[in-house]
Design a protein around this nucleic acid. Structure first.
Length: 707
DNA sequence: GACCTGCTGCGGCTTG
């Protein structure tokens, strides 16, 4: 393979003293150099995917003619900054210019590129959106000669609104260079290759190159039952002893818990004069502090450290290799587990090390299920987008802004040929455009659609370029230096103490006008409160939990208390006599209380809850064990579910009544509120609920009674 | 108790 590469690239490899090419690199070189087909490169973390894409692309592309030749698209600014150094290093062998283009990148360098377009461009989807909408003339000048579009961490776009937007942007780029650019997608965690291929818009000519080799994982499972809001002290002490001499990432699943873990570990360390390198890293920590932590982790070789973090440290940002990954209570998805495990054992021949703590039996069971699925190489498929009317509406505004004016037929031609919207029909676009005209987001002059009076505010706001929502928050400052931010809550009051950035603070001033809170150091205080929605657990994980629950086999890696907790939970359920894992579901009858364990994913349960509400049946739902508790059930469960199915033919009427009563149901969608009401209903049905799988569950479920 | 992601144009100021 080496000989196929161009001389400067071969020199790069010699200078790096690579003894051999990784399997994914060899395969990618062969494929990319021999064809112009789109490719998806799927291979575990730290397997050299970036080079797998760029070595052959840089060998093949002729950079002498003007114009940007390669676009690299990343979901994160931090990843662009990281990859910039690697790619620039590579490109220095070819005298090719690399330019960063995102909201925090240098404007003068952007302007230089527009004056004299060439080389490789690293950019975010939102920056592409902004360029297409605001300065289409720049986009034409820059992208007329693009040969390759590399999409990093492509799984982070799949199954998400941001992915539909990216698809649409790729479709809008096509006419600028007569569609001659090939797409190369990179990821370590793709569960559904068919869906990954749809990103390119040409599934038939998209090939997947897959390196299935996996790292061995060394797993230890511990159990410390928690009765209250805080983590048990014996868990914290054990965690301290296990991690004090190592470089570790700790994933406690919430920002609030990150603070708790970082502060408590630091206190334990202080007491015995241990190292001071305890940090917390999540979205509410100020950017500069986060960057400091990342740089510390990457460049420090001498000292052990512990970073309590959320999914901010899950994607490909390079913080080097850690000795161990700690997970406190279960992950919500296998994809997330794979990414987190990939942060340790990155060196050749090294194992990944995972230390897991459960604080309740269901979290232990969920982890065992996830590890089981992980061993099989399973990654949950993402829900394919169906009728994304909200993103369509956003892209309609973007198209009209990009074109300045266009008639309906031109708009329809563009939407119709856009692979993000293959399931949208002309009459649907007509309805939505008519509604946009009625609400003054669009206007029609001489048969031409233009942005309307109220639309101007929307498309000219800096909030226009994203398809996801963000909550307003207060800035937290110490001596005018920003530490982080928090959403306003009753917790934020003068003289209250709280944790942030692994330190404890006392609030001394609140400026509501400027949304600023001043703090000074303190020695004791509470965990911060953040508002958020948990993740979505896939039905496959819940089904596997049932399987592990009724199995006899003792899973490996558990300590004695964990084993005992599993034995206990298995004993509780041994009386049910589950025979068919797919259909049988336990129902516990105790006095007048009925508890149904569905072992279904979050979306199916959410849909079942919708039915129960509509039937005026009172219940409580518990996400951790996926169960519904009924305290005054007057009919038996099969009758109830039969009635639920009878609601289906009138679904729209029920949903629209719900929406009228509670418009915040649409809060999950940033652009949904601008849709006509009947399309808002469709959006709820397609994106928020899962009627297909809920109905299938109702039809096949067989209640296994236990008293 | 429950994750994350991104951003323009322009006016006005400071600094070399």
């Amino acid at each position: 393979m080496f000989d196929l590469l161009s001389e400067p690239i071969r020199k790069y490899i010699r200078d790096k003293r690579w003894e051999y090419l990784r399997p994914i690199q060899a395969a990618a070189i062969k494929k990319i150099l021999s064809s112009d087909e789109h490719v998806i490169l799927a291979s575990r973390t730290a397997s050299g995917k970036t080079e797998a894409a760029f070595l052959p692309i840089l060998s093949k592309v002729d950079f002498r003619e003007p114009g940007v030749k390669v676009i690299y698209i990343s979901p994160l600014i931090a990843l662009i900054n990281d990859q910039f150094q690697r790619i620039e290093d590579l490109c220095s062998y070819l005298d090719v210019r690399v330019t960063k283009w995102h909201g925090e990148a240098s404007r003068s360098l952007k302007e230089q590129l527009i004056k004299n377009p060439s080389g490789v461009l690293l950019i975010t989807p939102e920056s592409l959106e902004a360029m297409l909408a605001n300065a289409p003339q720049n986009a034409r000048k820059l992208f007329g000669a693009v040969n390759y579009i590399v999409i990093d961490e492509i799984h982070s776009f799949l199954g998400a609104d941001r992915g539909i937007q990216l698809k649409s942007i790729l479709a809008r780029l096509k006419p600028l260079n007569s569609g001659k650019a090939s797409v190369v997608g990179l990821s370590a965690t793709i569960g559904d290759y068919a869906q990954a291929k749809t990103m390119t818009g040409d599934e038939a000519n998209t090939k997947v190159l897959l390196d299935k080799s996996v790292k061995e994982v060394d797993v230890k499972l511990r159990y410390h039952l928690s009765d209250g809001a805080d983590l048990p002290i014996d868990l914290m002490k054990n965690l301290y002893l296990e991690t004090r001499d190592h470089k570790v990432l700790i994933f406690p699943n919430s920002r609030s818990r990150c603070e708790e873990v970082a502060v408590k570990l630091k206190k334990l360390s202080d007491r015995v004069k241990g190292h001071p390198y305890y940090f917390s890293h999540h979205s509410s920590i100020h950017k500069e502090l986060r960057e400091y932590i990342e740089t510390f982790a990457k460049t420090n070789v001498r000292y052990p450290f512990a970073i309590a973090c959320t999914s901010t440290l899950e994607l490909g940002i390079d913080i080097g290799s850690v000795d161990m990954v700690v997970q406190i209570d279960s992950v919500q998805s296998i994809s997330s587990l794979v990414q987190r495990l990939g942060r340790s054992g990155r060196r050749e021949g090294e194992k990944s090390k995972l230390l897991f703590y459960a604080t309740n039996p269901w979290s232990l069971l969920q982890t065992l299920a996830c590890l089981d699925l992980f061993d099989e190489g399973y990654i949950e498929p993402l829900r394919p987008a169906k009728k994304s009317y909200d993103i369509l509406l956003h892209q309609v505004l973007a198209y009209v802004k990009q074109f300045s004016e266009c008639d309906f037929n031109k708009l329809w031609e563009n939407i119709h040929s856009n692979h993000a919207f293959t399931d949208i029909e002309e009459h649907e676009l007509k309805d939505i455009v008519a509604w946009l005209l009625e609400t003054n987001l669009l206007e029609k002059i001489n048969g031409q659609l233009i942005i309307g009076v109220d639309g101007e505010y929307i498309v000219n706001s800096k909030d226009f370029y994203t398809v996801f929502k963000t909550e307003p928050a207060y800035k937290i400052l110490h001596q005018e230096k920003p530490i982080g931010e928090m959403p306003f809550s009753p917790q934020l009051e003068i003289n209250e103490n709280l944790m942030l950035a692994a330190k404890i603070w006392k609030i001394i001033d609140i400026d509501h006008k400027a949304s600023k809170i001043s703090v000074i150091p303190a020695s004791d205080g509470k965990k911060p409160a953040f508002s958020g929605n948990g993740g979505i657990v896939h039905s496959k994980i819940r089904e596997r939990m049932l399987e592990v629950l009724v199995a006899k086999k003792e899973p490996a890696g558990m300590d004695e208390t964990a084993s005992e907790a599993l034995r206990q939970l298995r004993k509780e359920f041994s009386g049910f006599g589950i025979e068919c894992l797919e259909d049988d579901r336990p129902v516990l009858y105790k006095d007048s209380v009925v508890q149904l364990y569905t072992f279904q994913g979050t979306l199916v349960n959410r849909t079942l809850a919708f039915f129960l509400r509509k039937l005026n049946i009172s219940f409580t739902y518990e996400e951790s064990d996926s169960s519904f508790v009924f305290r005054e059930l007057s009919q038996d469960l099969p009758t109830v579910l039969n009635e639920a199915m009878r609601l289906l033919p009138n679904l729209h009427a029920h949903i629209s009544a719900d929406l009228e009563e509670n418009p915040s149901l649409l809060a999950f969608s940033k652009w949904g509120e601008y849709l006509p009401i009947e399309y808002q209903c469709e959006l709820l049905i397609n994106k928020y609920y899962d009627f297909e799988n809920a109905s299938a569950f109702i039809e096949r479920v067989n209640f296994v009674r236990f008293t």
